[in-house]
Design a protein around this nucleic acid. Sequence first.
DNA 1: ATAGGGTTAG
Length: 643
Amino acid sequence: MLYPSIPTVPLPPFPSLAAVLRLLRRETAGGGSLLLTKQAHARAIVFGLHHHPLISSRLVTAYSLFGLPALSRLAFCDSASRNVLLWNSLLAALSHNASPREVLATFHRMRVCSHEPPDGYTLALVAKASSEIGDARIGRGVHALVEILGFGSDTVLGNTLMAMYFKCLRPNDARQVFDEIPVRSVASWNALILEHVNAGGTEHWELVREMQSEGFELDGFTFSTLLPLCAEGYAATDDLGRQLHCYILRHNVGMGSKLHIGSSLIKMYCNGGRTAAGRSVFDHELQRNVFTWTAMIAGYVENGDFREAIRLCHSMHSVDGIMPNEVTLVTILPAVGSLARLDFGKQIHGFASRRCSNSQSSLNNALIDMYSKCGSLATARHVFDDESWHKDGISWSSMISCHGIHGEGNEALKLFEKMCSLGIKLNHVNILGVLSACSRAGLVKEGMQIYSSLVGSHGFIPSSEIFSCMVDMLGRAGKLEEALDFIDSMSFEPKPSVWSSLFRAAVTHCNRDVQHLASEFLIHSEPENPSHYVSLSNLHASCGRWDGVELVRKSMEVKGLRKAPGLSWIDVNGMAHSFYVADKSHLCTEMIYKAVDCLSQEMKVACNCPVLDNEQMKREARTIQSDHRVSLTRLPGQANRLT
DNA sequence: ATAGGGTTAG
């Protein structure tokens, strides 16, 4: 067995038990000095103190705080006398840094070797380990032992056993444990409520009332559980989220839980689209940590305010001295991609490779997506091909979509096959990814094949997004009749997105009948959406039916509908330039239009297209642009992005 | 003993 390297620190003249103990105080070890811990260990060995159970258990715990279970075990093994305290320290160290099975194995050794019976702390650690394994038989054994050893009325152990039965999917046993706890605590109720929330039922509010009627106050844990349920609150008349927020402020809830509550509140408001309310919580928080910041950044990202998200990410260090962590980076990367801010994306990549481990799939997945959205297919692929990290389902899905976005349908299909052969489970997202890749690349046959094999042989139930994608695939390829048949064959009412796909296709292929049909359905299913009226009006205009135009405009007026004109914008050297349709207001208009013409020509040559007249050319350019050069991402109430 | 922030499509 290897001893830790003994540092060459001069020993004080009269080393004593107390001096070693002082070095092994939790604060010293937890404060980050592995060197001091090793120094203490060395001294203990030199003076034979490492046999003392108090010293050895401190050593076990100290190494555990550094995440070094092998050294914890070493300190344990070296001790000549082992009491419950020492065994418990080892079990706790393994519980934090090793597998639950190792905890149980060590517990069995303790039962055989130790002359002292386990205490409540031992049993709590073992119950926790058995809940992580999720095996109810093992759990029942622990429960029996708790009763036999006389801890049956212990509140903390009761709570642990209850959580254990929930994790082992034995809710009835869990409930029985709860009912039999003689003196319940807030934690007992919190655990019960959490499980009901996770199970997706509605009884949790009833439980909260019951808890209050028994005289318990809701605490920070209760609110962390309840707040996520209130995101949609403001739409309802009673706005539960705000009510809970007021309760928290009035009762000053959250001794020691202020940070948890803060980030939960921010998330709750932002999930309901109320970023301003979330920001107000954020600004008034007396203490913020990386969770608080990440919650606020995520709120902006989710609601499409990418610039504010990036601004916050930049200022977290200067304002609060807090560094972004991996989760923060994973949160901000989609915003970077949506704004096509390759420069910032590269900075994040550099920052991550310096400060984070390279093993996190989620971070690498987000990087692939960011590079892909910024137009950097090669870099995205480079990250993907790096073999030092483990690829999960999302990694494959991201890479497949990335090739799809860049028009490389065949490469997307190749990856999809490989993904399936690796046994990665298919879901709505990764199927939609490969189908939309087929759609963009015009691989109709291949896309149909995947669709029918999944729906036909594998009993997959397609989502409405997948239906729209299939209509889009057929429509782009000009197969409008087949697209209509496909819509007919759908087993449920087509969502507006299905009709939108059909409408776009009909515009591209100049089929006025289908345009008309789709636009009627769109107006019928979303009568409050102004875009549909404008589309119909434009259709009438293109046929010279000015009375139709008039009619549509009137009905918009009656309904009080106005459509905000669409914008496109492009970032040039950090400056955003935006354009309306046929906009001529830019200072460099002439130059810009010349450049666009050149690009269109180049694209046509690249696509081997015949030279067309001016009208045809414009139409063609629009189609090609929407497929390749220009990817349009709609931001709510904002502009489109040009990449 | 019970809790807080995140990645793929559209």
